[in-house]
Computed example of a mutant assay.
Amino acid sequence: MTDSPGLESRFYIEVLKLLLQVITSDDQIAPEELTHFSTVARRWNVPASEADVLMERLKQGQPLPAPDMGLLRSRPQDVMEAARTLVGVDQRIDAEELNMLVQIRELLGI
């Protein structure tokens, strides 16, 4: 059984929310991370308005929305792949990012 288009889009919006948490985990926002975020949002067909709101919150230093971990647990391997890819996009992986990946694995139950 495949997800309906609405559920698929909702899943990817929640992944994007999680990716924002990863981007900010080391208190350094690399331009490559922002570019990657925008690229995957387009690739996943997330409505531009949704991605723009998330990006604007990040840029303005507003609190980031918490992702729906229940929904993300439905596809934990996809979530981990997205997080690992983002962590490596700037060619630097620091302790905070590694800790974030461990936390994500735990929250996903894997």
Score class of each variant (00 low, 15 high):
Tyr12Arg: 12
Asn99Leu: 07
Arg57Trp: 03
Ile13Phe: 01
Leu18Met: 15
Ile29Glu: 02
Ile29Asp: 03
Ile13Gln: 04
Gln77Thr: 04
Glu97Gln: 13
Val53His: 10
Met55Cys: 05
Ser38Gln: 15
Ser25His: 03
Pro31Met: 07
Leu18Arg: 06
Asp26Ile: 05
Pro76Asn: 11
Leu18Lys: 05
Ser49Phe: 09
Asp78Lys: 14
Asp90Ile: 07
Leu20Thr: 04
Leu20Arg: 04
Val89Asp: 09
Glu32Lys: 14
Pro47Glu: 04
Ala48Gln: 10
Gln77Ala: 07
Ala83Met: 09
Arg43Ala: 13
Thr85Val: 11
Val79Ser: 01
Val87Cys: 11
Glu106Gln: 12
Leu108Gln: 02
Gly88Lys: 11
Ile23Cys: 08
Leu19Asp: 01
Tyr12His: 15
Thr2Met: 10
Tyr12Gln: 13
Ile104Gln: 03
Asp90Ala: 08
Arg57Ile: 03
Arg75Val: 04
Glu33Ile: 10
Ser74Asp: 04
Met55Ser: 08
Pro63Cys: 08
Ser9Tyr: 06
Gln77His: 12
Gly6Arg: 14
Ala95Ile: 11
Val53Asn: 06
Val40Asp: 02
Glu97Leu: 07
Ala82Phe: 05
Lys17Ser: 00
Gly88Asn: 11
Leu54Cys: 07
Asp94Thr: 12
Leu18Asp: 00
Glu106Phe: 07
Leu7Tyr: 08
Val87Asn: 06
Val89Phe: 07
Gly109Phe: 09
Arg73Val: 00
Glu56Ser: 15
Asp52Glu: 14
Trp44Gly: 08
His36Lys: 13
Asp90Glu: 10
Ile104Asn: 02
Arg105Lys: 15
Glu8Tyr: 05
Gly61Phe: 13
Met55Pro: 00
Arg84Ala: 06
Phe37Lys: 03
Thr39Tyr: 12
Glu56Thr: 14
Ile23Gly: 03
Ile93Phe: 09
Ser4Cys: 10
Ala83Gly: 00
Phe11Ser: 04
Ile110Asn: 01
Leu72Asn: 01
Arg73Phe: 04
Arg42Asp: 13
Pro5His: 10
Ile110Ser: 06
Ala51Tyr: 09
Glu14Cys: 01
Pro31Phe: 09
Ala51Leu: 03
Arg57Gly: 04
Pro31Trp: 07
Gln103Pro: 01
Ile93Gly: 03
Thr35Ile: 02
Gln103Arg: 15
Pro63Asp: 08
Val40Phe: 02
Leu20Glu: 06
Val89Trp: 05
Thr24Arg: 15
Lys59Tyr: 10
Met55Gly: 01
Gly6Leu: 13
Met69Gln: 00
Gly70Tyr: 00
Phe37His: 05
Ala82Tyr: 13
Leu19Gly: 01
Glu81Tyr: 10
Leu98Trp: 08
His36Pro: 00
Ala41Leu: 05
Arg73His: 12
Asp27Glu: 12
Ser38Ile: 02
Ala51Asp: 05
Gln28Trp: 08
Gln77Glu: 11
Pro31His: 09
Asp68Ala: 01
Val53Trp: 07
Gln62Arg: 10
Gln60Cys: 02
Phe37Ile: 03
Asn45Leu: 08
Pro76Trp: 08
Val46Asn: 11
Gln62Ile: 00
Leu19Thr: 00
Pro76Tyr: 04
Asp90Lys: 06
Met1Phe: 10
Val89Thr: 12
Ile13Arg: 07
Pro47Val: 07
Gly109Lys: 05
Gln28Val: 14
Ile23Ala: 13
Val89Leu: 11
Glu96Ala: 14
Ile29Cys: 04
Glu50Tyr: 14
Pro65Gly: 05
Gly70Ala: 12
Leu16Thr: 02
